[in-house]
Amino acid sequence: MEITLAQNKAFNVLVYYAERIQPLNLTKAIKLLYIADEKAMRQSGVPITWLNYKAWKLGPVQEDIYFKIKQANDYSKSGVDGSLEVVSAPTVLPDGIVLKPRKPFDDSQFSDYEIDVLDEVLKQYGKYTSEQLVEILHREGSLWHKVVKEHHLEKQFELKNNRSDYVIELTDLLDTDFKKSAFEVAYRSYLMQANLI
């Protein structure tokens, strides 16, 4: 199972949250991951992980992370990327999957600012249930809501097709020249680190 630079960083974010929230279920973990990236984009113009999120029925989902965790659970593997233990707990939580840290959070991948964002998300949203986070992310005016309305996904979701391939554009949050410039510089740096250019 190949893990990209962005996914590795994302799993490390999930370790950070799993160390501080117990139990941390899959749905809540995916929502907190998205919220951290959105918050960083709103504030600085630069996301934490550089992942893409799709508009699914229950809100923004990073598809690759979601399926890697689901696959680890479905095949009774002990973990994902060596960083997370995936445990089935069907009677405890709505999606039946709990994430536990297998190794400590590695802060070397993160700036002080990024860790501050993770802490802000934890403080503001950590006590919410996954259902409450879904409601928050579904609010009118949210990026998820915009994609659902623009592509008329309500009917699709009503018909039990809970997934879509429509990407939530975090770049829509680049509302100043400073944020646009910061994004461009950081994106080029990310591509170089990931050996993509």
Score class of each variant (00 low, 15 high):
Leu174Thr: 09
Lys127Gln: 14
Met1Arg: 10
Leu122Cys: 12
His145Asn: 15
Leu173Lys: 02
Lys39Pro: 00
Leu191Met: 11
Leu170Tyr: 08
Lys103Thr: 15
Val147Tyr: 04
Phe157Pro: 09
Ile21Thr: 13
Ser164Glu: 04
Ala72Tyr: 02
Thr27Met: 10
Glu2Ile: 13
Asp37Glu: 09
Leu191Trp: 06
Val98Tyr: 05
Phe178Arg: 06
Ser181Arg: 04
Lys70His: 01
Pro104His: 14
Tyr113Ala: 06
Ser78Ile: 08
Glu131Phe: 01
Gly82Arg: 06
Ser111Trp: 03
Phe183His: 15
Pro104Glu: 15
Ser189Pro: 04
Leu137Lys: 05
Lys100Val: 03
His152Val: 02
Lys9Cys: 08
Pro60Phe: 01
Arg163Phe: 04
Trp56Val: 02
Leu153Trp: 03
Tyr190Ile: 14
Ala36Gly: 05
Val13Thr: 13
Leu84Ile: 04
Tyr166Pro: 07
Tyr66Gly: 01
Asn162Gln: 11
Lys123Gln: 14
Leu159Lys: 15
Thr27Tyr: 01
Ala72Met: 01
Ala40Trp: 09
Glu135Leu: 07
Arg163Thr: 13
Val87Ile: 09
Arg102Asn: 06
Lys57Ile: 01
Gly126Val: 05
Pro47Phe: 13
Thr129Cys: 02
Ala182Tyr: 02
Lys28Val: 15
Val15His: 07
Thr176Val: 00
Phe178Gly: 02
